[in-house]
Amino acid sequence: MSVPRHWRESKRRYRLLGTKCKSCKKLHYPPRTVCSSCKSRDLEEYQFKGKGNIYSYTIIRNPPEGYTFCRPYAAALVELEEGEIVTAQITDCDLDHLEIGMPVEVVIRKLFAYGESGIIVYGYKFRPILPRK
């Protein structure tokens, strides 16, 4: 169990907090220290809005150690409104009715826990947009 590793990432992982290049305006998620587009090192925090569409997805039926509690679960490449793509789980969904292009929104969920006594790692997942009544 590594506490500092998760603590270090927690803010960005809870909130989908990325970076924006001050010189070429390119957005990044995951956050970077060197712009992937223009190599500038002048970057600032950028808060992604958390809405997007499924670019591709899969259903994980053989999860790695620590993730069986949600098995089976959907994982996706989510293309955010801002154009960046992030990897995340799709939660609260019907596994038989996912499709490329489906609109999704970000939520915070338990990603995994280090057993019964270790820390719980929380982070973003996406879900189908909640229908409003």
Binding site: R13, P30, T58, I60, N62, P63, P64, Y67, C70, Y73, A75, V86, T87, A88, Q89, L111, F112, V121, G123, K125
Partner: peptide, 8 residues
């Protein structure tokens, strides 16, 4: 940013 999400 990939594996932590349980993506194998």
């Amino acid at each position: 940013y990939e594996a932590v999400h349980g993506v194998t």
